[in-house]
Structures are given as structure tokens and as C-alpha cells.
Design a protein around this nucleic acid. Structure first.
Lengths: 358, 358
DNA sequence: AGTTCGCATGATAACGTTTTCAAAAGTCAG
DNA sequence: CTGACTTTTGAAAACGTTATCATGCGAACT
């Protein structure tokens, strides 16, 4: 008997040497049929061993497992996906992966997805015109996707969301709740308001705001800032817009430093705050003695920066995990859009202080 | 005739309402057979319109395209992959996505892959024990992968590489060439040596080195540093090891500042350099007046840091693109391992200066 | 001992495409 | 008007897996 098996050890390799020009051909991978033949059992039995869906006698299971390692067999997941109809890939669509908040969120999604047996594909979709986004999106939709998570932190994310069909599980991640979608959010509005109140509480007459590119007219941080100022009866100065580029904060800081009436600046994120601080310091004023500058996100370098940056701690890892949970709910057939919100706590460091006495 | 078609407009939906408990069921997606039925043509004809593989009369093509938009048909890529045997997913395996160099490389890979019609899945595999890595790797291998790119910047990457079978297209990305694999590298050794020579040229007696977790015994930056010191006949001080954690640099900086004989420090990357600078400044010494501190990578925040950090510019985006090109070569059946190397240029900013006069 | 039950097993269908291959329908030249 | 092409079309097979169903076998019960 062992001889009969030995005869069959090699899988079908008819096309292994398909021509003299192919110098190195990856051998055609073993299929479940090859395993069955080598193990001397039927195809479904191998499948049962693989999936554990039904009982198989110890002796046969043993034979199958030996055949599997011998042939280096790996299941073809395309065939699996086709027959089971179940997809295991989750697409994350975003305009950028190098910004800290973005990559940290993606890593959170990835970890949660992997634990649940899903894989994450990243689609970086830059914002150009709507047609371009459409094209990129439909390309991604060509994949066998179980669901999609969109990082809606900026205008590109909004555009992506617009291009997406609604017949597939979908979750948006952002800083503010809006439409009827399933959303994982960090409550930026509350945190922005708290940060503003903190600065006012230090004695500043008002707080200036440097905003990052918002996903809609105004992001949650800005709204919270505006509300807190209104509550306190403080004047609302015009918003200063920064870009994602590192230098943009520096230029703004330079401009801010020229105005001695400005004593407190709330920046849309920590990177911008670092730039603003650099600009202010470059023009000879001190932070926080002359001007207080605070950020948002708690970037890993914020605690290292000198002065350490007072900020709101966004737990992007948890945000990503919550986004995945919401998506998993939909994949399982849950009907109604769900929301998950968390409120970022303040992290007090050294970059904010009472205003200078005049 | 139009009526006959109208009767058939809806795709098969037998299981659309599969039970009273399912309140919202995603309709079973239209298949190519549904499209064929609605358009009144055969299944292969629809396929031909889709792939453009053969000519179809204008009138039928028109009918098919109308049916496609009407049904919102999207091809099932699992079925496609199954029959064609071609895979379109590339896995990037890495231990981290939030470190700047890592995420920038991944973005470069992603952009190049998308242009070539591939998708990128990210596998974050933390380094614990070898068995754990094995498990994570074989899980990822369950996907229908066209190829794999491993970010071999650290010990985790090395372990991942060890767990990977060699019967699948594979490229490693790192800072130094070693074994027979296809590799995309940045020539860290040359850049490390150049940086060290630069510091010696400013008049420093020797240069201390703070290293980040290396992928093997010593990374390219360290080797270049060692060689340049030897060339110049300078003493080689013991290496100081930092971790990826932001604080670790600060602690090291504190220690370094206590030793007045140390005037030049070459850090393994910019984040660590920022930490070291913070630590040095915290203990009352000045950078670069008392101590010169330089980094590596050209992190986007390095130009904003005060003082601006002198560093070596690593083009991670191009690194990622080169890695993908190498992989594409293998996927097309190229036999021999290929290499691609690039040399990072120095970026002179303000954090290094001649040593203080004694 | 005969019948029924439970369980392991294998044959076969199904999933949604693309790829042959053969047939049908034109098209052109003689 | 016929024969030989070329082009367009459809039928059927194939891809590798899981799901369904029937079968055979031994054990347990009457």
C-alpha cells in the first residue's frame, strides 16, 4: 500500500516545464485534489480536515495532514471565497498614510481586523477631481471586499464617501457625526471646547484658532472652539487656515508673533502647533511666556518637543478598533447605522501658561 | 421584444427575503448571467465586453453595457482570480506602520502597485516569539497573493523573512544588502559614513552613535559610522542603544549632557535625535553650541524642529516604488534576484556646528 | 437475528468567471 | 450564385473549493 501511495506523491505537473524560454517557473501549486490523491481519501474529506466542519477518523486525518505538509499545500482562497460567498478583505480608503493620526487609526483597524480573521487593504486615494476619485474607487471595488472603512478626516475622504455605492458594508471614521452612516468618531467638539475653556481659564482674553483642512465647512475642533468662546462671551477672531505641510505652521507663527495682542493659539493638530511654535520663537517671542500655543491629537513627538505641547489625547488605535467593530456588525447583517463616540482627554504640558502681564 | 426583456429585468433574488428576522438583507449581487439574460445575449459575450478580449458587435455591446449599469453589476473578482490564476494582491509585512519611514515606504509601494493594477494589503506583525510570527505569516499566506514585500528595517522584519516560504515572489526592503534575496535598499552605509565625516570635518575629535533597533547585528548607518571613524583614525566610542519609544532619546540625551567630552552625536533616526536634543537642552547645555546632534531619515518635522536637524534625506517614497518594481519583475517570471540601491544625500541644517573651544 | 439509528465517507452539484472550440452568419472573390 | 474565408456568437469545460445528499457500515436495541 505504501508503494501505491508513493507512486502518487507528486501532484499533477503537466505544465511545469511549459517551454524552454521559461528559465524559472513557480511549480503549479498543489490543489486539494492532489492532497486527496496522496492521502488516499476523497476530496471532501480533505476539505473537512481543513475546515473542521465535520468529524474525520483519526487515522484519515493523520494521513491528510501528512500529505498537506508533504506537498506544501495551501488552500486557494479565491476558490474558497467563490463558493462560500464570504469575503475576508476590508478596504481602508484614505488620502494619506503618513500623517500620524491616519496611520495610527489604520494600525488600529488592522489589529482588530486580523483578530477577527479579516485582512486590510489600503487604498490611498489622492484628492484631485471627482472623476479621478470615482475611477480609483471603482478600481478598488473590483476586489472581493467584505466592507469598507473611509477615513473622513479631510475633503478627500468626503469625496471618496460620495463616490461609494451604499450596497456594501461601510463605516466612516471622523471627528464629527453627520449623516446617516455608521460612524466611529472622536468627540472633537467637546475636546475643542474644553481646550478653549482651559486657555480662557488661564486668563487669556480670547483664543485664536489655526485650523487644518476640514472635512466639511468646519471641523469639530473649530466648532467646539467657537462655542466655548461664545459661552464665555469672548470675541471670536477670524480663523487662520493651515495646510498639512509642515512649513505652513511656521509661516503662520511668524505672522502671529507680529501681533502682540495675540496671547493664545489653539492649533488644529500637533504638527501645526510645532510649526507655529517654531515661527513664534524664530521671531524672538517666547512660548509659553509671551504666547501660549496648544495642539490636538497628542502626537508621539509632542511630549518631546520643547516646550512640551499641551494637547488633547486622541486614541487613534481605539478609534480604528471601534470602526472595525461597527463594520463587523454590518457584515453580520445588522441593519441600522451605529455610532461609537469617545471623548479625548486633555494633556497638560508646558506650551500654555497665563498671558503676560501688561 | 422589449417586453420580453422587461420581464427579465430583475436578477434572480430567490433568497432576497430569506426570513422574517432579517430586516435588511443586501440583495444578492447581479452575476454575469443576470446581465446576459437582461441584455439578451450569452454569458461569454458579456465577458468579452467586460475584458475587451474579443470583438463584439456594436449593437450587442451597447445592450450589454446598458444592462450592466441597470443592474449595478460588478464582476466577482474571486471567480476571476480562480479561473485566470492571476492574483492582484500584494502583501506588505511590517512590524509597525506609524513610524515615519515605514509609512512613507508603504505609501510609495501602494502608489506604484495601484498604477500597475495591484492592491496592497498591510500585515502588521509584531515581533514576539518565532512561533507567533509563523502563525501570523501563514494566516496572511491564506490570501491569494501575487507577491510579498517585507519591511526588513528591524528584527521583526528579519523574523518575518525567516518564516516566509520561497515559492512566492518576494522582495525585502532595508538599509543594507545581505543575502540572495531581491532587495530594494537605501545605501545607509555610505550616508552614515558621509555624515560621520561631515562631523569630523567640523573639528570634532570623535562622534558618538545612538543606534535604533537594528535588523541584524549592526545596521548600515552604524557600519558607515564605524568605517568613517576608522578611516579618520578617530577613537570608536561604545554604541548607545535607543528604542523606538520617543522618551528613550530624552533619557540618553540627559546622560550624554553629563559628559563634557562628548561634542558630537550621530543618531539612528530623526525622532531619536529630537529626543536627544530635548534631553541635552533640558540639562542646560546648548545644541549645537555645546553639543552637535544629527539624525537620519529627514523626518518632515526635522526642518521645523529648533534647531533644524541636520540629517540624511531618505527618499522612502522612491524606495517603496523600487521595491514594487523588483517584485513586478519576479511576478512576470524573472529568475535572478535583482537589487536597487540609492544613496541618501545629506541635509545640512542647524543642529551641528564646530565643537566648543576649550 | 433483524431492524433501526448514527456516523464517517464519497459522489456530485454549485459558486461566477474566462477559455476553448465549434457553429452560425456574414463577406468577398470568382 | 457558389465556395472559401473571416467574423461574431454561444455551448461547454475548467478553475479549486465547500455544501448537499445519498450510501455503506457498524453499533445498539428489540
Amino acid at each position: 500500500m505504501s508503494e501505491a501511495i508513493a507512486d502518487d506523491l507528486t501532484p499533477a505537473q503537466g505544465d511545469l516545464y511549459s517551454g524552454p524560454t521559461m528559465s524559472r517557473t513557480f511549480a503549479k501549486p498543489a490543489s486539494i485534489a492532489d492532497v486527496a490523491r496522496v492521502a488516499g481519501v476523497s476530496v471532501p474529506t480533505v476539505s473537512r480536515v481543513l475546515t473542521g466542519a465535520a468529524k474525520v477518523s483519526a487515522e484519515r486525518r493523520e494521513r491528510v495532514q501528512r500529505a498537506i505538509v508533504e506537498l506544501g499545500y495551501r488552500p486557494n482562497s479565491a476558490a474558497r471565497a467563490l463558493v462560500s460567498g464570504k469575503q475576508t478583505i476590508i478596504a481602508v480608503m484614505t488620502s494619506d498614510t503618513t500623517i500620524y493620526g491616519y496611520s495610527a487609526t489604520i494600525e488600529g483597524i488592522e489589529v482588530a481586523a486580523r483578530e477577527a480573521g479579516f485582512f486590510v487593504v489600503i487604498s490611498v486615494i489622492e484628492f484631485s477631481d471627482a472623476a479621478e476619485v470615482d475611477r480609483a474607487v471603482s478600481l478598488a471595488l473590483g476586489q472581493p471586499l467584505a466592507g469598507i472603512i473611509v477615513l473622513k478626516f479631510d475633503p478627500a475622504g468626503v469625496q471618496i464617501l460620495k463616490s461609494l455605492p451604499r450596497d456594501i458594508p461601510l463605516v466612516a471614521v471622523s471627528g464629527e457625526l453627520d449623516d446617516s452612516l455608521s460612524q466611529a468618531v472622536l468627540d472633537e467638539e467637546a475636546a475643542g471646547a474644553e481646550m478653549t475653556r482651559y486657555l480662557l481659564g488661564l486668563g487669556h482674553a480670547t483664543v485664536h484658532h489655526v485650523s487644518i483642512p476640514p472635512s466639511r465647512k468646519e471641523d469639530g475642533r473649530t466648532i467646539g472652539w467657537r462655542k466655548a468662546l461664545a459661552e464665555a462671551g469672548a470675541e471670536t477672531p477670524p480663523i487662520i487656515s493651515a495646510s498639512w505641510a509642515a512649513d505652513s505652521g511656521v509661516r503662520i507663527g511668524l505672522g502671529l508673533a507680529a501681533r502682540p495682542d495675540i496671547t493664545a493659539v489653539f492649533c488644529g493638530n500637533d504638527e501645526v502647533a510645532m510649526g507655529v511654535i517654531a515661527g513664534v520663537v524664530d521671531s524672538g517671542r517666547r512660548v509659553p511666556d509671551d504666547v501660549s500655543v496648544v495642539g490636538f491629537d497628542d502626537h508621539p513627538l509632542s511630549r518631546i518637543w520643547r516646550p512640551g505641547i499641551t494637547t488633547a489625547m486622541q486614541d487613534f488605535g481605539s478609534l480604528g478598533k471601534r470602526a472595525f467593530s461597527l463594520l463587523a456588525l454590518q457584515i453580520e447583517g445588522e441593519e441600522s447605522p451605529a455610532r461609537s463616540s469617545e471623548r479625548p482627554p486633555l494633556v497638560i504640558r508646558a506650551s500654555a501658561a497665563p498671558p503676560p502681564r501688561r
